[in-house]
């Protein structure tokens, strides 16, 4: 029985490791200026945790194979070094891992959250709602008109609650159902929730951030590769959560300018 358990543990350890080593299911290619830090951190953590996982399973397998009951009254022995060695090993191993991951890992976090958006960043407001994302560009005047929740009229495409009759700044605001941005240009997103909590997740951008009703949350990033990607919601927001998405279109500066011009007509 011990041998069988050992073999099964071995198979589990190897079977789990193979898809990871082969990246059968893995993160898509990174398209952000900060993502490489997250990717590096991910690989390091994967290496350390992976080794810890496989090693633990293998040692467990080895011990259960070796120390089955022999029924011959063999005297129990103890691991050389005893509990003290185990505690010291655990603290040393995990301690260094914790320190390494904790200290180096904070850089990626800092890049996303501690730095302010570049001053030339393109400001875009994103509103999350049941069940979609809508994006607002300031338009030629460079100003966002104020929001009036009581003016929201979705059947009439007024998702944000703009009041162009009274607010001059709102008249040229551009509303889009896709997030269209120029490549290699810092983007400053202002995240606003209309109803309940949502989240903004673009795998390729290595960005995820909750929308919190009542808070307007700033977020910034730079996309480095032209293409079309999916933005999805990762915070349970109701029955249409599974279908809450939008597309991110990263365009060259010229294409973007042209798109913007088209929109403001």
């Amino acid at each position: 029985m011990g041998k069988l358990l050992a073999v099964v543990l071995l198979v589990i350890a190897i079977g789990s490791a193979i898809p990871i080593l082969m990246h059968t299911w893995w993160m898509p290619e990174d398209i952000s200026s900060h993502g490489y830090m997250i990717d590096k951190q991910m690989s390091e953590t994967m290496a350390e945790s992976g080794i810890a996982f496989v090693a633990a399973q293998l040692v467990l397998a080895g011990f259960v194979a070796m120390f089955g009951d022999k029924k011959n009254g063999r005297k129990a022995t103890h691991l050389p070094g005893g509990a003290k060695a185990v505690v010291i090993a655990a603290i040393a191993l995990v301690g260094t891992e914790v320190l390494a991951l904790g200290v180096f890992g904070k850089d990626a976090w800092a890049e996303v959250y501690f730095k302010k958006a570049a001053t030339d960043a393109l400001p875009i407001q994103v509103q999350a709602e049941q069940f979609g994302f809508y994006f607002r560009y300031a338009g030629p005047d460079g100003k966002f008109g104020p929001l009036h929740p009581d003016k929201i009229d979705e059947g009439n495409q007024n998702f944000f609650g703009l009041d162009p009759a009274n607010d001059v700044e709102s008249r040229d605001d551009i509303i889009a159902a896709s997030l269209v941005i120029p490549v290699n240009k810092p983007i400053s997103l202002m995240m606003h929730a209309k109803d309940v909590g949502h989240s903004f997740y673009v795998r390729e951008l290595r960005i995820q951030q909750d929308f919190v009703p009542g808070l307007d949350i700033p977020m910034h990033f730079t996309a480095t590769k032209v293409g079309k990607y999916e933005i999805v919601c990762t915070q349970l927001c109701g029955l249409g959560h599974y279908n809450m998405r939008a597309y991110l279109e990263v365009k060259s500066q010229e294409d973007f300018d042209q798109w913007l011009k088209q929109q403001s007509q």
Partner: peptide
């Protein structure tokens, strides 16, 4: 747990 198995007489 794992270390204690060393030297045991495990009954499965």
């Amino acid at each position: 747990w794992i270390g204690s198995i060393y030297g045991a007489n495990l009954r499965f």
